[in-house]
Design a protein around this nucleic acid. Sequence first.
DNA 1: TTGAAAGCGCTAACAG
DNA 2: CTGTTAGCGCTTTCAA
Lengths: 354, 354
Amino acid sequence: MRATIKDIARLAGVSAQTVSNVVNDRPVVGEATRRRVLDVCRQLSYTPNAAARGLVTGSRKVIGLVVPHIGNPSYGDLIATLTRIAGAAGYSVVVGDTGWNAGPERELLRSLIRQSVDGVILASGNDASGLQALRDAGVPTVLVFNYFEGCDADVFRIDNLAAFRMVTRHLIGLGHRRIGFVRGLMSTVVKAREDGWRSALAEAGLEAGDELISASTFDQHGGHAAVTALLGLADRPTAVVCTSDIMACGAMDAAADLGLDVPRDLAVTGFDDIFVAGMRRVRLTTLRYDRARLAQQAFDRLLQVMAAPPGQSPGPRQSIALSCELVVRGSCGSPAGADPAATRIRTPKEVARP
Amino acid sequence: MRATIKDIARLAGVSAQTVSNVVNDRPVVGEATRRRVLDVCRQLSYTPNAAARGLVTGSRKVIGLVVPHIGNPSYGDLIATLTRIAGAAGYSVVVGDTGWNAGPERELLRSLIRQSVDGVILASGNDASGLQALRDAGVPTVLVFNYFEGCDADVFRIDNLAAFRMVTRHLIGLGHRRIGFVRGLMSTVVKAREDGWRSALAEAGLEAGDELISASTFDQHGGHAAVTALLGLADRPTAVVCTSDIMACGAMDAAADLGLDVPRDLAVTGFDDIFVAGMRRVRLTTLRYDRARLAQQAFDRLLQVMAAPPGQSPGPRQSIALSCELVVRGSCGSPAGADPAATRIRTPKEVARP
DNA sequence: TTGAAAGCGCTAACAG
DNA sequence: CTGTTAGCGCTTTCAA
């Protein structure tokens, strides 16, 4: 059916080895032979079989990328960027969506291992079991966004604590005293964000009671449900800090559904700065980070780890916590008459912990 | 490094073939042997090498999915759904993002062919060259959304003409007489949508001049640019039909940036019904279709084609044009006092053309 | 500069 | 029920 190296060899009157040399641009082939072989390749539209090649070379030139929710434009952007970067380096990307669930994640990782991917960028995972499975299989892995207690892996993440302290301080500065926290499933990431929220409240002498924390799914429906609950409190919050923009979208809708105005009756903040947040109709105050940079750093490091002799990673583990910038828009009641263009406040800078 | 079937065989004191039988759940193995083998597998955390298996069985259990823009939640949803469906059938999905460009698409398809994917779902492509490449390589392919003149392939698409005629009629019914058309790159899909817009105008005796058509990129920036241009016309439109929700988002912003109110000064419609369209702040009138169904149908058909003897497809080509429903929200100036909940109008029904 | 032989990890087909 | 043999498409020796 599909032409193999032998077919080409036969038709070109050379050996399979010579065809291989031509196809791989090894400069040991005579010009005449070369042209003849390439001609036949084109004629049969020959494409090397990567699986067969991988079997012998030990590298498939494929990496896996596991995310929790492709429908979130934030992850969509990450995937697009990473696909581009990896493609330029000759790697294909297998993308998996876990839907924030452990079962699919486990299956996905098993599948990636079976496929002998050269490495994995893991942007999902609620516990360290997935990472452990990859490690057992000897698959180089880099974590993005998430990380686990005491895990020995390269991590490229957000400085969640600083980011959420910053946004909470911003709300406090605007006069808010009762500030809710809207989160998805618990994880180290969410924990750090909660700690950021908590620490900002603490330093202002404000209460961070458990009733101010509302947990739900990590999408717009979750944000809606969580905020509906918070607004049902007797002493309801005047502001909510959401852990993603899509949750914040749901939060704004929840307020609207109760006849409340954002920002007058409820201030809302998000995280990710997806395109929706910047819409004139939405104007969501949120936290932004450099997704392209995160992707680039993670991939560069993965290349290093993949190049290292099996078993150990090259040099010390890298653990980068990228800082965010606060993007102030209208969803928190910016002072009247202020310039409607987004005001940006940067945190100190990137923090590297070796 | 990674355990192979031979390692297992040696440690369990059986032949490789027996290990293979155990791993593949073939019921020809004694219970005692079975347990012993499985034990060793677990101990070495053995995972079969899919590439090696694929080499001999001829099937990798992988399909490719090519989309033009992962960052668009509409495609994100499609990917997530398809990943789930395919996973349930034992297939992994390799996702590629072309960014609407021919170069990346070509590269992506070459990569998929090299990887010997069992089949491809092509939701991208501006011309038939990609499809041709897949055909030359003997890779079963199903088209989703897009299609090409006279192409002999299974297609699962939207009835674009009917959909855009419907939405344009809706605007005409609301009293609009000058209606712009905002599109991305030209393609058969966009052409059909334009024809829908044009035919609705024609039947109302309205003008469909070229100056009312504004082309740009298929994202929010494109929508912004295109509508900014339309609003710069001396005799500017009072409504714009956009070919995607994210373009419509940009369109709404463009109006706002010029100090115009949607819907009072400009009516805007989209396509896809992504979650943003339903937000209370946005309330975008748009066209909805059943993404999950589209994905399911396309995958089912791909399975059929993959199961068929190489070369021909099983039975006649399928060409399904799924109809849309109009989701009326606030972006076109729904009559005052109307129920703010979305009103839905269904088109006749699904049209199948064999 | 080219060819022949061996083998990557696995399964199909047969033999025992 | 289990083991042996052969070979998938390719690259890596090594020899000519």
